[in-house]
Amino acid sequence: MTLLSQLWNRKIEKVVWYLVPVLIFSFLGFLDAAYLTATHYLQAPVGCSLIAECDTVLTSAYAEMFGIPIALFGALYYTALFGITLALLDAKRLLVFMVLGLASGTGFLVSLVLIGIQMFLLEAYCQFCLLSAGISIAIFLILFLMFWKRVYSRVF
């Protein structure tokens, strides 16, 4: 408990310019994932105009986990990420930053796995999935930069 309160009491400053892009990317990621979730449940055409193999990816066995489409997990992930980022902007606490970093790190790893599945197991790509993976990776890199510039040097 004391560690948690210590982390809570540590404040981090000058992070708006890192967090606003994270908010924007999270929102875009949410739109992308919400679109794929909606097409999944409404059985609508996805519009695979750029890379037409996306049907192969989106109907593959890897598109679902426990009967829930990966896209829905994605939409929830981006919503959570947006919420945590907003909380960090609201109360600039080290603890909130660590939660955000943990969430984003998980998203980063999952994105790498999903890209790997498309590359090596399916040998087919879906632009909406790649876009989402790109967004997750970008968010992680922004947060890593922020950690380097604003957190590591000042707090530790």
């Binding site: 929102f27 949410f30 739109l31 919400a34 409404l42 609508a44 947006f82 907003l86």
Partner: peptide, 28 residues
Amino acid sequence: RLGMWLLAALAFAGAGGGVVWLVQKSVP
């Protein structure tokens, strides 16, 4: 702060609803 959170919640609800509506329209 309350306004900020409300705005964010509204933006997500609106965007989610908009996406579902657009997809619904494209269903044959």
